[in-house]
Design a binder for these strands. Structure first.
Length: 548
RNA sequence: GCCCCGGUAGCUCAGUUGGAUAGAGCAACGGACUUCUAAUCCGUAGGUCGGAGGUUCGAAUCCUCUCCGGGGUACCA
């Protein structure tokens, strides 16, 4: 019997073991054998190119060696059904269908099929969004938010305990500009003299906040009233949090930069770097001697105005995260941060702080397209489409899917026409439709109140059925590799392929038939597909609809 | 100048331990609904994998050089 607890990894190990003993018997020296998946299923499931490598060493024909090894191999179990040797010198292994049938059983017994324990008892911190409350979230923040959330989900599916963290600074230059902008609009609306800052925010939302101040606090505020500082920040944060709520993103922790001044950690950090001789004063500013750590030039830590640059508090913040003993620390940054984090890592390294468990995810920019044309956007001029606008236009599921359907480090062209399209062109619906289709079929059979667990997997013999089973079997490995690469796209692509294989199956094989045994078997396969699709969609944070 | 990311079908993109015939969606064309959801399926067409060298039995994948696009290179974040 084939044990259902077997994994592909174990099967590969068995193949390697058997291969090695065959090689030893034939007198070949020990080799580092690699097993690869066959791209073309006609060859089998796995293959080894070891004959090609041996051919070189022994100056013999690779296909001869392949035949020789094939004839000499003794299988230590019945998982492998067939071994073949093919040109130019591959040995192929075909896995018995029984193995895949056992996977079917495993899926149906495990609603959380795909979950891995690779991160069990480990903690991860994922910092993302981290937008300062100076305005509505942009499309770029959207990509950041979805990536961060889905990466967190991926880690959770691998057993990690994840802290989703939002880091912000409500005391910097940008916050002052927000305050000044609102103040100017306040007095402008009241027809009083006003001074709109040169680099102020011109968006309509600024006027909205000013109006709210008039409503809540009256028309007689003086220009130095602290309301102008506290109120806009509060409103903007509410706005941001509301957008995140719509996207169903929940943070566990909000870290304020200010805390690291208050608790003295920034000063402590500075002093420690000083004792390492990495800090010096020049032109009234305090510099970090990155040049002595292999960088081209030094960086300013504290400006001559007395105000620190982001590098100093960021370093203190990251040390704080390291000190909180996470096994994995992930930062999700836009490509414009390319040059910022290496200095932080450098400073921490210099202080002997462990940094090799800090992973920085840099995603490339997002371009919005409408009618095939790029939409030009300027944050300051407020000629942008906010993340809120985008959600209102195309919906949460579409937004979430579009942000993970491309690789992190490729430019994302967000096609608004395609996203808003409620038809078959939209890849999100293709996926959800597969799930809804399955639900509908299951519902239909359930009405006949049959015993769904009494299925016979041996009846699943059609090519498209085996194909689908093999696809489902991959899911746990996909979840693992998404974790290793910290790349949500892996999940999105996999789900797209899984849906395609199901649709193909549906077209080829009628699920509900006159033959009750066959019906039950096919329903079992459909149910297993439903579990995988639903779990994958859960990781992406996208709804799995029962009907469409 | 230097650093990072990208360049694969008309368009948008997959393709990570180097493997056999380089894939998908959209767009184009042609088929399939008295049937469990046609938001689906099947077929046709479409390629010097930016270019040139190199490593190798074997390269979209690794190395070097080069061209093009994007981003960064602040006492902005």
């Amino acid at each position: 019997m084939v044990k259902s607890s077997l994994t592909v990894k174990m099967i590969i190990e068995i193949i390697i073991k058997d291969l090695n003993s065959a090689l030893a018997k034939l007198g070949y020296s020990k080799n580092d054998i690699k097993i690869a998946k066959c791209k073309n299923p006609e060859f089998g499931d796995f293959s080894s190119s070891i004959p090609l490598i041996l051919a070189k060493i022994h100056k013999r024909s690779p296909i001869d060696i392949a035949h020789q090894i094939r004839d000499e191999m003794i299988l230590s179990n019945n998982i492998i059904e067939k071994i073949t040797a093919t040109d130019p010198g591959f040995i192929n292994f075909k896995i018995s269908k029984k193995y895949y049938y056992s996977v079917l059983e495993e899926i149906l017994n495990k609603n959380d099929f795909g979950k891995s324990s690779s991160g069990k008892n480990k903690n991860a911190n994922v910092e993302f969004v981290s937008a300062n409350p100076t305005g509505p979230l942009t499309i770029g923040h959207g990509r950041n938010a979805i990536l961060g959330d889905v990466v967190s989900n991926i880690l959770e599916w691998n057993g990690f305990a994840v802290t989703r963290e939002y880091y912000f600074n409500d005391a910097g230059r940008q916050m002052r500009i927000l305050s000044k902008s609102v103040k100017a609009r306040y007095f402008e609306i009241l027809d009083k003299p006003f001074n709109f800052p040169e680099d102020g925010y011109e968006g309509e939302y600024i006027k909205g906040i000013a109006k709210e101040i008039i409503n809540d606090f009256g028309k007689e505020l003086l220009s130095d009233d602290s309301i102008f500082k506290s109120f806009p920040e509060k409103k903007m944060f509410e706005h941001i949090k509301n957008t995140l709520r719509i996207l169903e993103i929940n943070f566990d922790e909000y870290s304020n930069e200010k805390a690291f001044y208050d608790n003295g950690e920034i000063e402590k950090l500075l002093n420690e770097l000083k004792t390492k001789n990495l800090i010096y004063e020049q032109d009234g500013a305090t510099w970090f001697k990155t040049s002595s750590l292999g960088k081209e030039k030094d960086r300013v830590f504290i400006k001559s105005s007395g105000e620190p640059t982001y590098r100093l508090p960021d370093t203190a913040y990251h040390r704080n995260k390291v000190e909180r003993n996470f096994d994995l620390i992930v930062d999700v940054f836009g490509a414009d941060h390319m040059d910022t984090y290496p200095d932080v890592i450098l400073a921490l390294d210099a202080l002997g702080v462990q940094t090799n468990h800090i992973k920085v995810l840099l995603y490339q920019f997002v371009t919005l397209l409408r009618g095939g044309e790029k939409i030009k956007m300027s944050t300051r001029k407020a000629t942008f489409i906010s993340l809120n606008d985008l959600i209102n236009e195309v919906g949460v599921d579409v937004v979430r899917y579009f942000f993970v359907m491309r690789g992190i480090n490729t430019h994302l062209n967000f096609d608004l026409d395609l996203a808003a399209d409620q038809s078959d062109k939209n890849p999100v619906y293709y996926l959800q439709y597969a799930h809804a289709r399955i639900c509908n079929i299951i519902k239909r059979v359930e009405k006949q109140s049959k015993n769904l667990s009494a299925y016979n997997p041996l009846l699943l013999d059609h090519e498209s059925e085996i194909d689908l089973l093999k696809q489902l079997e991959l899911f746990p490995n996909i979840v693992l590799s998404a974790k290793d690469l910290l790349e949500p796209q892996v999940i999105a692509n996999y789900l797209q392929e899984t849906a395609a294989k199901f649709h193909k199956y549906y077209a080829n094989c009628r699920i509900i038939t006159e033959n009750e045994d066959l019906t039950l078997s096919r329903i079992a396969l459909a149910s297993a597909t439903k579990i995988v699709l639903s779990n994958g969609l859960k990781i992406l944070g996208i709804k799995a609809p029962e009907k469409m």
